[in-house]
Nucleic acid binder design. Structure first.
Lengths: 338, 338
DNA sequence: CGGGGGACGTTATACGTAACACTTGGAGGC
DNA sequence: GCCTCCAAGTGTTACGTATAACGTCCCCCG
């Protein structure tokens, strides 16, 4: 029996099986075909089982110079959306023998300057959702292979990007509302400095500008129910004609809009139509159920991981945005004719 | 200039600064007081900065025999609740120079037998939320220091435990409803084999049994809005007197109950009162806002991490459950007198 | 009967870091 | 003048693994 206080090593297994450490490595690494006899291999496996042997990952990582671990940087964990992204990424990763480590962006967790101070794990690459440019350059400084999710393809410092076709989602929402007859729209905009939100505002404005007689107003709000409530209430009690529809950057914002409308005595969709974006569980918990743009978070995660694997293997990542789909529910209707 | 293709090592830094590798290690490890002169130390730091040196974590982990990385096993990432637990754990961890890696339980991600197959990172310890017993024994088999969240203190194989005082939450809910005059209660129970849910059912039954004239019925449902909707609808259309209050194991279940009641033409709280448990953002998105038990997820995570640090340092973890608090909102009212 | 080549291993080495044990050149004490 | 001591480092080793390179046997073929 070896030292019982410490974890058994491959050398301990070797001694127990009466072979060399190299043989243990070969057998357990599944590289023994034609190099070790079946009986010896079985003896090694038996010894490993007996001792409860687990390879030391730090040693393996050092030896191989790679870790088969990847970091997923997300802006926060507070929505199901990034849970879905993680699930998809982890599924693809597992198929390729990779693990995924999460790093929620440094809001209240240590210094923002160094995204890796808190993620001690040694890494092969990084998948990062839209984040501020300075954090991005910090990551690039680490020379790690990088895939950006939902980021400006032009300005991402040459990193590979995987994007949802949110511009198309905005198009679908706009056409849906215009088709119903809406002409006066309030954009409840996420007050977060990020390419994706700026792009949504631009796209929405451009779509509406193409139709004469339309008006748009923008109300920025932090992404929380309370924040959206306040912003919506302020925007609707302001002077001028009342919007007949509210386009929200996010389902959570839509939930806040619902509350504001209720507080003002307005009904959805009779007085005001509301649309969201994400299609979280929240969307169907609301009454009436929310018309929103469904984003396939898991597919997003899968495509992100596949892109990173491609970069790691020196291949070209698959191009093309991920399609999104408008889900029409009960929160949109034609505007009441005045 | 060293080999530019590969990452610089401490030896490269040493060469650039004209010192030995050992000196670099001392300076960068902040152990140089009285061993290296201030001028040399500065020269080393300068060289490290120049080359963009980052220590190889795999090598450090191997050398030190520890990783300062901890695994947090959560049942799923689909709720804000575990996002909060993570945030709290990561905050405490960062204060002690630790990192936290997340491992969502193996639902659709690789083989359930080996929770670590997907988490390649080398680990110092594990924090695990309530999970099936076989997964637990698998973890124990790895000999890693373990803290269990919200698990049976008796049956957790000697691991340290940190618990929310959910029994007290159930007490508060029960007393609130009994005080309002409710006597016939439906328990919308999470259909998940877990100590914490079994405990809630037991506690609820015991509390009600102490009051003569009360009735309780149980409807098990998967933790999803759709599942809760179906279960509630089935339970309410069954024969017998209709419950006047629904106690849900979870806010998400409550959202499903709301939908079922709406579909049946019943109003909250006039016809039926509803309570939840968690106090997610969802609770205030509902109309009327949900009376629920607030769990302090971040504090839960902090206490979990502190307990693990205590175990790692050979100390005794702090004892005592984390208090929870009933938040009364608009979803509970006295039953209508028939 | 010589030797070519499988089958079955072993020996040796490197990955990058941290820490222990050791050296060197003076300064100071008596 | 010799011993001691300290500052300021250096040389060396070990952590546990994976793999390239190197031995043996022994069988079989020409």
């Amino acid at each position: 029996m070896a030292r019982s206080s410490t974890r058994p090593t491959s050398r301990d297994v070797a001694q127990a099986a009466g072979v060399s450490q190299a043989a243990v490595s070969l057998v357990l690494g599944d590289k023994w075909r034609g190099r070790v006899s079946e009986t010896t291999a079985e003896r090694v496996r038996e010894a490993a089982r007996e001792l409860g042997y687990r390879p030391n990952l730090a040693a393996r990582n050092l030896r191989l110079g790679r870790t088969r671990t990847v970091l997923l940087v997300v802006p926060a964990l507070t929505t199901e959306f990034f849970a879905g992204v993680y699930t998809g990424a982890a599924r693809v990763a597992a198929r390729h023998g990779f693990g995924v480590v999460l790093y929620p962006s440094p809001e209240g967790i240590g210094p923002a300057r160094d995204p890796f101070a808190s993620a001690q794990a040694a890494l092969d690459g990084v998948i990062a959702s839209s984040m501020a440019a300075d954090a991005l350059t910090a990551i690039r400084g680490d020379q790690l292979p990088l895939v950006m999710l939902d980021s400006d393809p032009e300005g991402s410092l040459g990193a590979a990007t995987v994007n949802l076709d949110i511009a198309d989602g905005v198009r679908q929402v706009t056409e849906h509302l215009l088709g119903l007859g809406h002409r006066h729209i309030l954009h409840l905009a996420a007050d977060v400095p990020s390419w994706t939100f700026e792009m949504r505002a631009r796209e929405l404005a451009a779509r509406l500008a193409a139709v004469p007689g339309t008006q748009i107003r923008t109300a920025p709000a932090p992404i929380s129910i309370e924040g959206a409530l306040a912003a919506t209430e302020a925007a609707l009690t302001a002077t001028g004609p009342r919007p007949t529809a509210i386009v929200c950057d996010d389902d959570k914002l839509a939930a806040g809009a619902y509350k504001a409308l209720r507080r003002l005595g307005l009904r959805v969709p009779d007085d005001v139509s509301v649309t969201g974006l994400d299609d979280l569980a929240l969307a169907t918990a609301l009454d009436p159920e929310l018309t929103t743009v469904r984003l396939d978070a898991e597919l997003f995660g899968e495509r992100g991981m596949e892109a990173l694997l491609a970069v790691l293997e020196g291949r070209e990542p698959e191009a093309g945005d991920i399609p999104v789909e408008l889900v029409v529910r009960g929160s949109t209707a034609p505007p009441r004719t005045p």
